[in-house]
Design a binder for these strands. Structure first.
Length: 297
DNA sequence: CGTTCAACCTGGGCGC
DNA sequence: TGCGCCCAGGTTGAAC
């Protein structure tokens, strides 16, 4: 589920807890298998209780809570992976509540939950060095909301990988996932199977531009809620970015721009959706496609 | 360097 | 109803 726009929406949904003190961290047990928590729950809870939440940050697709106490700072790094999310109210199912942050004192919020149905998410408590190792520039590239064409070209321009697969590489650019990779390439008019090294140099600027635009729009619309609508905002509303999807999840549906049925293929064991007419590889056809999209972005 | 596959999990949807 | 299969927003490590 959560790609950059969904995680950014989670982060914003946690703005209200910044400045509050943690009374207790709880890791409820249930019938489902526990998620990965490091250090072990009891130890983690002991280290965090009493600290103040000094910030709610995002690094790529991770939520990072800054936890301070006199002379000391720790980072709670939460990776929602496929179905994790933060909630300020009741969870869809109590069995999948993975962590409860009990807040001290009086305020609008008494607690915040991390909920994760599939349980692929992870929670880590790290010091400054650990944060650098887990979220530093060796692991995560420039943020998708700010990435430039030069950065993309430098990271991927010589790669033989298909451009769609490469855009999912978090070291190249942080935050793009399967939904938005498809949407970005549709808006750029580029065939997802194109090898990076075959892309004309100036197309990286175009991809970067569409990356920033698609992700920013999705943040504005509070992320994509699709399928079983697992994803919700922290106050339990669905996102609206799915209403703008041009290709993702639309196999055989006529392309909104040209009417050609959207195709689904598999790349690196993941579905890729694209319009075989609007997104093209050949130089001449690409010119045509770009001209089309230049008129209707 | 790059690709492929399996694994980590739960649950919804579909065909029979 | 039930069973079996396929699918899902992510990431990692092993094998080739």
């Amino acid at each position: 589920m959560p790609e950059l726009p969904e995680v950014e929406t989670m982060r914003r949904g946690l703005a209200g807890i910044v400045g509050r003190r943690v009374a207790a961290l709880e890791f409820p047990r249930s019938r489902v298998r526990p998620i990965s928590i490091s250090p072990p729950p009891a130890t983690l809870a002991g280290r965090v209780a009493g600290r103040t939440i000094a910030g709610a940050h995002r690094r790529g697709k991770r939520v990072v809570l800054e936890l301070v106490t006199a002379g000391d700072r720790l980072w709670l790094v939460v990776e929602p992976r496929m179905t994790g999310l933060f909630l300020v109210g009741d969870p869809p199912s109590p069995d999948h509540v993975r962590m409860r942050i009990q807040l001290a004192g009086r305020g609008a919020l008494g607690s915040v939950l991390f909920w994760d149905r599939r349980g692929l998410g992870t929670i880590r408590l790290l010091d400054d060095r650990g944060l650098e190792a887990a979220c530093g520039t060796a692991v995560l590239g420039p943020d998708g909301l700010a990435v430039t064409g030069a950065e993309l070209r430098s990271a991927l321009g010589r790669s033989r990988r298909a451009v769609k697969v490469a855009l999912l590489d978090q070291r190249a650019v942080a935050g793009i996932g399967n939904i938005y990779a498809a949407e970005i390439l549709f808006r750029a008019g580029i065939d997802p199977r194109t090898a990076c090294r075959r892309l004309a140099a100036d197309l990286w600027e175009r991809i970067a531009d569409r990356t920033r635009a698609v992700l920013a729009e999705a943040v504005r619309l509070e992320g994509s809620s699709i399928g079983d609508e697992t994803y919700r905002t922290a106050d339990n509303r669905p996102g609206r970015a799915q209403l703008r999807h041009r290709v993702y999840g639309r196999e055989n549906v006529p392309c909104r721009d040209c009417g050609t049925p959207v195709r689904r293929i598999v790349q690196a064991q993941r579905s890729t959706f694209f319009c075989p007419t609007c997104q093209v590889r050949s130089r001449a056809a690409r010119r045509r496609g770009l001209a089309t999209h230049a008129r209707m972005p």
